[in-house]
Amino acid sequence: MSVNEPGGGQRSNRTLVRRLLLVVVAMFGFGFALVPLYDVFCDVTGINGKTNRVAEQADGLVVDQTRWVTVEFVGSVQSDLPWSFGPNDVKMRVHPGQLSETTYYAENLSDRAIIGQAVPSVAPGVAAKYFRKIECFCFSQQELAAGARRDMPVRFVVEPGLPPEIGTVTLSYTFFESKNQPDAEQDHSNHAKFGVDAEA
C-alpha cells in the first residue's frame, strides 16, 4: 500500500494537513462572521426585538384609519449610570401609518457630566420590523451636565403591515453609560458610531 510508505505518505499527509488547517481558519472566521450574520438575521426576522438605530423615513405609508394599535413606552437605566430616565407618556393609541411623537425625560443625578447611550428594543420581537423610528435620542449619544434634566422627543410610525393579531407594541429604551466620557473625550470615533453626531 503506497500511503503506508515513507515518501508518498509524507506528501499526501502534508496536503491533507494543509486542507484541514484551511477548514480551521475558515471556521475561526465563521465564528466572527456569525456576528454580522446574526444582525442580518435579526433585521430580516425581527428576532430579539432589535430595532433600527438609524433614522428611517415615514414616506409612502398610508394611514389605516380603521385600526388602532396601542404603543407602550418603558425606560430602564443600567445600574452603574446615576441617571433617572423614563417616558413622559405611558401609552398612546395610534393608527398604523400615522406619524406620532412622544417624549422621554432623562435627569443626571450625579455631580459630573456623563454621556449615555440609549439602546432601543421593541416587544413583541416580530413587531420590531414594523416599527420605524423617524427621530430618536437613541440615534446618538446624549450628554447631560451635572444635575441637568432634559426631555427628548421620539417620532415614530407603526407600519400598516403589522400583523393583525398584534394589538399592543412596547417600545423600550435602556440607558447605558457610554464607554467614552467627557473627561476622556480624545477619541471621537465612538461618538460617530451610529453615523450621527453626539450633540445632534
Binding site: V77, S79, D80, L81, P82, W83, S84, L109, S110, D111, E177
Partner: peptide, 15 residues
C-alpha cells in the same frame, strides 16, 4: 451610594 464606584461591584443606587 448615589453614583456607585465605577469599575467596581459598587452599583449606583441613586435611582
Amino acid at each position: 451610594v448615589v453614583n456607585g464606584r465605577p469599575g467596581t461591584a459598587m452599583q449606583a443606587f441613586g435611582a
